[in-house]
Computed example of a mutant assay.
Amino acid sequence: MGFGPPQGRPTVTDDEIAAIMNQSPRVRTLRNMLGATGDALNPLIDLYRPWVTGLDRLPRDGRFLLVGNHTAFGFAEVVLVPYYTRRELGVRVRTLAERALGQMSGLGGDLVAAYGGVVGHPDTARELMRHNETVLVFPGGGREMPKFKGDEYQLKWDGRSGFARVAIESGYPIVPVGLVGSDDVYEPLFGRDSTLGRLSQSIGERLGGPPDMAMPLVRGIGPTLIPRPQRMYLEFGEPISTTAPSRTDHSGWVETVKSTTQQALEQILAALQEIRAGDPYRSLNPLAWARAAQPSEPVTQAG
């Protein structure tokens, strides 16, 4: 989920913008239902003891751009980042989604819209920011999700800086947010540059997709596809100002903000992996959940 440079991308129509900002009664009803469900899920999510830190760093006015990493299946981060932001600030997060997802019709499309998903396009982001909405983007988009062995928690932005450009134009600070844990639910069986990895990419390309979107073979518990229980580690970083110093070249400043954000997110992911490596509860042993350490406690001293 995300958007890249505007060149060559279909424009977002006025009707699409209107639909995003003035949602139908059905979408508003679903949104209220999801909000109530989210509140009811608080005890269940707390039971799984996700390790969450940095919520106190979020700008209190809700006017900021969250920039995150996509994990192998793009699910945990899409749920947990908006969930904890809403729980902390009481605001709805608008997630910039791939065009096909953002334009879904029927109940599926209504659910995406109710949860805050919108078409990932610079024009959409600008309109949301004009209305002071909290926005979430994954600059790597779908290309960041296929994880071969060794690809875990690697950012694949491929020079994408559209998020930085729009944030600068709108005067939006950027909050990097990293998630670790989801890439370990399944274990990739081979590397991208291995013989089987190259074969997988070749097959994906022949089927009409780009090589970097090829899906690797994975395993869960033992040789099965049963997902391995894994604790999630989520950190919201320090806000990054997008206000340019005086007499700064615009294109150079866009690249500076993009690089600063990427480096901050990479540092968050490295720190979370280190925390996870020393956490005796990372595999979510049900008998030990109640003793799992939280950010206010040293993880290595848990239990």
Rank of each mutant, 00 (worst) to 15 (best):
N285H: 11
Y172Q: 07
R160P: 01
E205V: 06
V254I: 14
G150Y: 09
D39R: 15
I275S: 00
G62P: 06
A290F: 15
I221Y: 03
A72P: 01
A302W: 06
G4V: 05
G54I: 11
T71R: 03
K147C: 06
S194Q: 07
G120V: 11
G303T: 14
V12L: 01
P245M: 04
I240D: 03
R60H: 15
L107W: 11
S251G: 06
P82D: 13
L217Y: 05
V52S: 01
Y153N: 13
F138M: 09
S200E: 03
V52Q: 02
K258A: 14
D212W: 10
V52G: 00
N22T: 13
T242Q: 05
L44H: 08
S200R: 09
A292I: 06
H131F: 11
P82M: 13
V135M: 02
R49E: 08
Q294L: 09
L47A: 10
V185F: 00
P5Y: 15
N69T: 15
G116V: 03
D39H: 14
N32G: 12
A302C: 04
S170W: 10
I268G: 00
R86D: 14
L111V: 15
D14A: 14
R192S: 03
T11P: 01
R49V: 08
R57F: 08
L47D: 09
F148S: 01
I203G: 01
E255C: 02
G35R: 12
G120T: 12
S241K: 13
A164K: 02
W157Q: 07
Q273Y: 06
Y186C: 00
G237C: 06
D110Q: 12
L66Q: 08
K149T: 10
V81Q: 14
V12M: 03
G74L: 09
A293C: 07
G278W: 14
T243W: 02
A97Q: 14
G178D: 08
Y83S: 09
T37V: 12
V299P: 00
P245C: 02
T242I: 05
T95Q: 09
V299Y: 03
Q294F: 06
P280C: 12
D39F: 11
G178E: 10
Y172H: 06
P295C: 05
V185A: 01
R206H: 11
N32Q: 14
R63F: 10
L80S: 08
D123A: 15
A18D: 15
D15C: 05
L89N: 08
E187S: 10
T85D: 02
E255D: 14
A18Y: 14
A288L: 13
F190Y: 15
R63S: 10
H70T: 13
A18E: 15
A167Y: 05
R92V: 10
R198Q: 14
G102L: 02
L217C: 03
R63K: 15
G197F: 01
Y48H: 09
E235C: 04
V218A: 00
G209H: 12
F75S: 14
G108V: 13
V79Q: 10
I226C: 00
E255K: 13
G141C: 03
W253A: 03
G252P: 03
G102Y: 02
R231H: 10
E187P: 00
L107C: 04
M145S: 05
L217M: 13
T195S: 09
G222F: 07
A302M: 10
E238C: 03
P146C: 09
Y186E: 02
G222Q: 08
I168L: 01
L207T: 10
P245N: 07
T260V: 06
I240W: 03
P211I: 09
G108K: 15
F163W: 06
